Amino acid sequence: MVGHRVGDALLTRVAKRLQRLVRATDLVARYGGDEFIIVAERSDGAQLIPMLDRLIVAMREPFHVSGQELYVEASIGISTYPQDGRDADTLIRNADAAMYLAKSRGRNGYQFYRPELNRAAAQKLQLSTKLKRAVKAQALAVAYQPQIDMQTGQVVGAEALLRWHDPELGAVSPAAFIPIAEETGLIQGIGEWVLRTACRQARAWRDAGLPPIRVSVNVSPLQLERSDLVKVVRSALDEADWPAEMLELEVTEGALMRNADDAARVLHDLRGLGVKIAIDDFGTGYSSLSYLQRFSIDRIKIDRAFVQQIGRDDGYEALTLAVIAIANALKFDVIAEGVEFDSHRHFLVEHGCVEGQGFLYSPAVSGEDIADILRATGSQARQVIASE
């Protein structure tokens, strides 16, 4: 989204910042794309930690390029000579494996190489190959988790969630294959397919005489950075003849902060279509309150990590109340994920969070099962005992 000229300028700023953070005797070099290599001579790996901590803290600070404020996420992998390799190729390959481990653990961190990472890399390659085949064979599926008005019991929406069942591996967790889809670029096509499928399914529920409900679709950071995302969304709505105000797109804090200025413009254009925007997993990222006001947002989703600690941890309860207060102050709607017990529901409703989703009501189920829920209850939520 930033363009080649701004992208090149950003890489130059990153390189200069890296050089300021290492010793004069250390070597900083661009390896390719957005990857850099630092060659540092220390007596042992432990002596690298102060430098690594400085790098992570410094890379969280924004870069100012061509009038834009840009954020990057740094993931660092470390290999040491001679323990992890006696030649450059081996050391780079092993540092790369450690870097991908750092990415999988949330980015903005570092990991030292361990021999077992090579086995993990082989498993990752196998999963990537199988995922490509599954996409080609149209073997992925979309499930829908009902979103409930916890005061009235009405089904007010459904979140579309990607599912993959491999003949050999069985049900593969999205936490395992979504990062691979993002790294390989498959997420672009997969994300668009989920969007179109969800819009068509919502239209099918309505055509069956069922009450129209909001459908929510997750948007990955790479999709948000696509220059044609607004065009794709408009096309999906037109194709399904589904009203824009009944589509909600969910984005994470991290996705917004990767390029805040461009993200704000895209969200503004999407809301111009009438589409609703929700921040997913709110409270687990690093956006500031001032940034929330910049984005065109309709709803905040309280992360399941907070909800599941209700009744167990006063600190998490306080954080949950803070999120609800922020939503109220900024006039955003709010919905909670991971509502599993009636104690969760009672606490949330009592403090102003009326909508929720979670196993207390239903796991993610097929489109046909959602239709059955709506038919059997007249939009009244019921507990569904099922396994995903």
Rank of each mutant, 00 (worst) to 15 (best):
G189V: 03
G189W: 00
E192F: 04
W193E: 13
L195F: 09
R196S: 10
R196K: 13
T197R: 09
T197M: 02
T197P: 11
A198D: 14
R200A: 14
Q201V: 10
A202Q: 07
R203D: 01
A204E: 15
A204K: 12
A204P: 01
W205D: 01
R206A: 07
D207P: 00
G209W: 05
I213S: 03
I213T: 01
R214N: 15
S216C: 13
N218C: 05
V219Q: 07
S220K: 01
L222T: 09
L222S: 11
Q223I: 00
L224P: 01
E225T: 10
D228G: 02
L229T: 00
V230Q: 08
V233H: 07
R234G: 12
A236L: 13
L237K: 12
L237G: 10
E239L: 11
E239D: 15
E239Q: 15
D241M: 06
A244T: 01
A244F: 03
E245V: 02
L247P: 04
E248H: 04
E248I: 03
E248T: 13
L249N: 07
L249R: 03
V251L: 12
E253D: 10
G254Q: 09
G254N: 13
A255E: 06
M257T: 09
R258A: 15
R258L: 15
N259W: 06
N259Y: 08
A260K: 07
A260V: 13
D261N: 13
A264T: 05
R265W: 11
R265L: 14
L267E: 10
L267P: 02
L267F: 09
D269I: 00
R271V: 00
R271H: 11
L273G: 02
L273C: 03
G274H: 08
I277G: 12
A278V: 15
D281S: 07
F282L: 09
G283H: 02
T284G: 04
Y286G: 05
S287H: 01
S287Y: 02
S288F: 05
S288W: 03
S290R: 13
S290N: 13
S290F: 00
Y291D: 09
Y291K: 07
L292G: 08
L292W: 04
R294T: 09
R294V: 06
S296K: 02
I297A: 06
R299G: 05
I300C: 06
I300M: 12
K301A: 05
I302D: 14
D303Q: 08
D303K: 06
D303V: 01
